[in-house]
Design a protein around this nucleic acid. Structure first.
Lengths: 216, 216
DNA sequence: CGTGTTTCTGACCAATTGGTAAAACCATAC
DNA sequence: GTATGGTTTTACCAATTGGTCAGAAACACG
């Protein structure tokens, strides 16, 4: 008997059959839908199963437990989630690099709001399942890029700013449009159907003015 | 028999006895603790009762249902939550008013992070219980203050900005430190024990540069 | 003190939860 | 075909969930 289709090798083990591939995909998709809406505790296996078009026992044929689904989902998405920051190029033009990073993050909010809300829920609820990833991967990456930004500021390529808080502010501002989408839309009702174009313009202005070096 | 201690008059009905006052307070406090951590669906009545130092049936003596507790909590806190924005004075100095608003919001994140997370959870999970308050009170208040800001920008007292997105950005930036506190702390570990002093400095710089009118 | 009211508890309930066991159903390869 | 393995379902379980109820304490107050 095939105990568990997925191995615990850490990453995505390629499923054996086409059916497994299809169903595991469907489960991940459904899990994203449900976990991002309700967080780990609020999510129900029934709901994930139904969303995936499977019966609950069948769902549990592919994953041993609710926690396993959640963990797999988070670890799978973590990499993609960090890509925009990874792409920040120390050799590029400082202001343009930071603006481009902001734009990439805003695109992620627009195109993958559920992923944003998944992480938001997870962190809001204490980050119990991704503590190590935050303290490890994420912190390392942030520290590295913060150092790059510090260098830029030091040589006057951008106005002096606290690099860590600059990164936080990019997260906060861009993710806000995904995590609080409902609120944003309700408040803008009658003004902007799609908040993102205006958000992009606003954030470009904001970071341009913040980083403009001539006034240091 | 006293069917339900709380009336549905909308606001906080003054409890009859001292015991009721004490216990209802304890319940609200416990509910804040639990709901802000897990959201509505993830919260468990047991946990609220235990945190409040009451038995579950006793808890349900004071409130008819889980939903009732949640609703009461939200409506009670909504007013306080909006106060910082209400205090934005159209007659004050524009830049100083906006900076002061930001500072008030940041103080709220520092001093009342659970309240922030409660609303964050609620909105993240679809804002089902506060939709009307958002579309009503909040939207009205935001529109009103956005109009004030628009006026300031128009007469050149601050640099031109989209007023609504300016308000969103204040929310995003300040609430981030409460909602994502775990992450912020984990990443800053070894650098800043308390993120708030540096956050305030950073945000002051950010909004000063954003709003400085001379470059309009 | 007694009596009426408020507050609290233990026992209970139906529904839902995450999860299991085993049998039934497939789809092939031989 | 039929053996063989992967896949799915049916039936089930124990624990937990939100919530009820009758009555026991605890209180207030004349």
């Amino acid at each position: 008997m095939n105990d568990t289709p997925s191995e615990n090798t850490g990453k995505t083990t390629p499923p054996r059959t086409r059916i497994q591939q299809k169903n595991r995909r469907a489960i991940m998709e459904a899990a994203l839908e449900v976990f991002s809406q309700y967080g780990f505790r609020g999510a129900r296996l029934d709901q994930i199963a139904q969303t995936a078009g499977l019966s609950k026992p069948n769902l549990l044929y592919y994953f041993p437990s609710k926690e396993a689904i959640h963990t797999e989902l988070l670890t799978c998405l973590m990499d993609t989630w960090l890509d925009p920051l990874r792409a920040l190029d120390p050799a590029g033009d400082p202001r343009e690099e930071i603006l481009a990073y902001m734009r990439r993050k805003l695109e992620m909010s627009r195109d993958y709001p559920r992923e944003s809300r998944l992480f938001a829920n997870e962190i809001l609820q204490g980050a119990r399942h991704i503590r190590t990833a935050i303290k490890g991967e994420l912190k390392a990456l942030v520290d590295e890029k913060a150092e790059v930004i510090r260098g830029w500021a030091e040589r006057g390529a951008i106005a002096p700013v606290n690099p860590h808080h600059l990164i936080f502010s990019i997260w906060a501002l861009t993710q806000h449009y995904a995590d609080f989408e409902v609120q944003v839309r309700l408040i803008l009702e009658g003004r902007e159907d799609d908040p993102y174009p205006e958000a992009e313009r606003y954030l470009e202005t904001l970071f341009s003015r913040l980083l403009a070096p001539e006034r240091a």
